[in-house]
């Protein structure tokens, strides 16, 4: 759906709607905050939150926490998706193994991973190791499922071509499998990125001494409600930015096969697999 073709003017109808919506939300927020419907201190006014946000952005410790969170998420993502792609290719290429193990993966994938936190804390301790493990775990499932699905949709003639050239297994993976399943893999990885961040934050909220999740919960525990909102805004912005960045990074690899029309439906369909 792209009705935004009239890019000549800055204030396209779509832009106008976006701006008006933001203003309406801010106004409603302000009204609610001063209305006295909610008891005082629970919902700060937008300006107070803006002030807290400004303070946060000036504070060096924010960047320390941000760094910790991104580090944990990134490392977890790399570990989780590497294992997932390996397992996915293995299960995808063997019908027997897939029938044997895919049900377990499916079963675990549909579960709230957060309840595994106690086990991760017990096994990996309370430091950043357990956060990385949580991130890797959250990343693993969408990526492994889309790798398997991606493998299964590869055109059989492609595989036969590879075989007829007597390619080794590693060259098959590099030259045939991966290129032929780029699209589903990209979708899985994109989801994996979002999940790795969510996974880390959930672990940090449950227990951590550093990271954005810990920062959020510390403010909340200390009755510092404006700063709680501020950190939340920062977290949402960071998550959105990372997702956007990852999508942009993938573009050059996918350009030749991505069409605009497909794009519209893209974010919705694959997520069913989680």
């Amino acid at each position: 759906m792209s009705t935004t073709s009239s890019s000549s003017a800055f204030l396209t109808p779509v832009r106008r709607i976006k701006i008006v919506t933001i203003l309406v939300i801010l106004a409603a927020w302000q009204l609610l905050a001063v209305s006295g419907l909610l008891f005082e201190g629970v919902l700060p006014q937008p300006l107070q939150v803006l002030g807290a946000l400004y303070q946060e952005l000036l504070s060096p410790s924010l960047y320390y926490d941000l760094g910790i969170t991104l580090f944990e998420a990134a490392l977890g993502f790399i570990i989780g998706s590497a294992i997932a792609i390996g397992v996915g290719l293995w299960l995808g290429s063997s019908n027997f193994m897939r029938r044997a193990f895919e049900p377990y993966i499916h079963a675990l994938a549909g579960m709230p991973k957060i309840i595994f936190l106690p086990i991760l804390f017990l096994v990996f301790g309370l430091g950043i190791e357990s956060k990385i493990a949580k991130s890797a775990m959250s990343t693993f499932f969408p990526v492994v499922l889309s790798t398997i699905a991606g493998f299964l949709q590869i055109d059989k003639t492609l595989i036969n071509v590879g075989r007829s050239f007597d390619l080794t297994r590693s060259r098959m993976v590099r030259m045939i499998y991966i290129p032929a399943m780029l699209r589903p893999l990209a979708v899985g990885l994109q989801l994996g990125v979002a999940m790795s961040i969510i996974g880390v934050l959930s672990a940090e909220i449950a227990y951590a001494s550093a990271g954005l999740g810990a920062r959020l919960i510390r403010y909340s525990d200390n009755f510092n409600i404006s700063s709680t909102y501020a950190v939340m805004i920062i977290i949402f912005a960071v998550a959105a930015f990372v997702n956007y960045l990852f999508a942009r990074l993938q573009e050059p690899f996918l350009r030749h096969e991505r069409s605009k029309a497909e794009n519209a439906a893209r974010p919705v369909v694959p997520v069913e697999q989680t």
Binding site: L122, G125, L126, G127, Y207, S209
Partner: peptide, 18 residues
């Protein structure tokens, strides 16, 4: 010094958290 949010986590940090 690090801090935990409750007794159980505190014990755990000594048992498994080094």
């Amino acid at each position: 010094i690090s801090n935990t949010r409750g007794g159980s986590e505190n014990v755990q940090s000594v048992v498994a958290g080094g």
